Simulated scan of single mutants.
Amino acid sequence: MVTRKFPRYSTSMPGILVQRDRVRHKASLCDVSLKGCRVESPIKPYTGMQLEVTLQLPGNITPITISNATVRWTGSHGIGIEFLQISADQLERLSGLIAELSPRQGFK
């Protein structure tokens, strides 16, 4: 069993993965925590690939942008991404999303 430092919560929202060469790929966020997320996307990333992750919150015009993230794993269940660095204002918005999701469900 995997022991997690940060609980993750299921969700379904659009996102965008941006590679260092600025190529943009659509993604669908499956679950999220304060330290990372799991997405589904047609790209075939490699472990260690550096990305920028954009999460489009429902009912919110401005997305959450994590400018420094890395691919930790890939497989049939999607792409596991770790957030390496998040600005204070984006972390506050991500924390708000987690707070909205947490009362509705237990963590994984």
Results as ranks from 00 to 15, higher is better:
51 L>Q: 05
21 D>H: 03
24 R>M: 08
84 L>H: 07
29 L>C: 03
70 T>R: 15
4 R>F: 04
41 S>V: 02
104 R>M: 03
103 P>R: 10
75 G>K: 15
88 A>N: 11
13 M>I: 03
3 T>S: 11
56 Q>F: 13
22 R>K: 13
6 F>G: 01
14 P>D: 01
37 C>E: 00
95 S>G: 10
98 I>P: 02
47 T>I: 15
22 R>H: 13
41 S>Y: 01
47 T>Y: 11
68 N>P: 10
49 M>P: 05
59 G>C: 05
91 L>A: 13
10 S>N: 14
8 R>Y: 00
11 T>C: 08
33 S>M: 09
91 L>P: 04
22 R>L: 14
49 M>S: 10
29 L>Q: 00
39 V>F: 04
99 A>N: 10
26 K>L: 11
43 I>W: 11
48 G>Q: 13
28 S>Q: 09
49 M>G: 07
72 R>Q: 14
35 K>Q: 03
100 E>D: 12
56 Q>S: 13
87 S>M: 06
72 R>I: 09
40 E>L: 04
67 S>K: 13
67 S>Q: 14
67 S>N: 15
64 I>P: 01
98 I>R: 01
51 L>C: 06
89 D>I: 10
65 T>A: 08
44 K>D: 09
108 K>H: 04
12 S>F: 05
40 E>D: 03
64 I>M: 02
70 T>N: 14
73 W>Q: 07
102 S>Y: 06
52 E>K: 10
4 R>L: 07
64 I>T: 01
